[in-house]
Design a protein around this nucleic acid. Sequence first.
DNA 1: GTGTCTGCAAAATATTTGCAAATTT
DNA 2: AAATTTGCAAATATTTTGCAGACAC
Lengths: 139, 139
Amino acid sequence: METAPNQRNTKQRQVILEELRKLKSHPTAAELYQKVRKRLKKISLGTVYRNLELLAGNKSIQKLYMSGSEARFDGETKPHHHARCTKCGAVDDLFELPQNIVQQRHMNLDDYDIRGYRIEFYGLCRKCKSRKQTAKTTK
Amino acid sequence: METAPNQRNTKQRQVILEELRKLKSHPTAAELYQKVRKRLKKISLGTVYRNLELLAGNKSIQKLYMSGSEARFDGETKPHHHARCTKCGAVDDLFELPQNIVQQRHMNLDDYDIRGYRIEFYGLCRKCKSRKQTAKTTK
DNA sequence: GTGTCTGCAAAATATTTGCAAATTT
DNA sequence: AAATTTGCAAATATTTTGCAGACAC
């Protein structure tokens, strides 16, 4: 309900979804396009964008807004949170966390009708932690 | 330490920061540019972008990655969380929440050296809640 | 057959950058 | 005076869109 009109099951859509689900890296549209291209030579970037929007619309995937100016997409729809490295921009899924960290009494906020929440932890990933250079942060 | 080299105190930087702090709306660079322009007729959008990056770099402001393809900026640096309306895209600050909702034992994650976390609540804002149309979501 | 979807290309949007002149320290 | 910053314009990067033909149902 609410969404999902008459959608068709195209080869392009299938492959985009499959490839996204294979990846753990929360790729950008352009990155996913490169992967999909290996299987569908003639697919266009526009098609990837259109399908990602459509899939996000019907909750088959998640659209993330975290690491920079490019949107990132996540094939995992089970509720989960993210860890983002402030140095290299990596984004990892976190499934370990219990989903009810935030108690119900905190959910009545500012007149919002709250449907859920997402936690973004930030810090240094394993790699960047070890080689803690002087390099520039953020990007 | 870590950041903040020899930075200068320019009129443009001051005004950008002042105007951003006045706003509660988490404006995009372009929106803030419009505000700043009223005080500095000749300022350019490029200068706004450069200063926002610089200010975010030295933690004078926050760069948010939430609502769409445009980055949004927040003049408030006290730790706080956000509520985002999934219908109209509005973003509100939440100061009510205690900052230690997530317990320490949850902070040892996936080999990350966690420095902090941010919670994004999502749902319908007061306005969109009342007129719960059939219209399209997300945008 | 009809409506959805695709590829392609162009358009629109968003952000970054080179450079000479201006400003800050 | 030296280093940083600005305005401007051009270059990039990212995302969206128009359209005719192809495809799914």
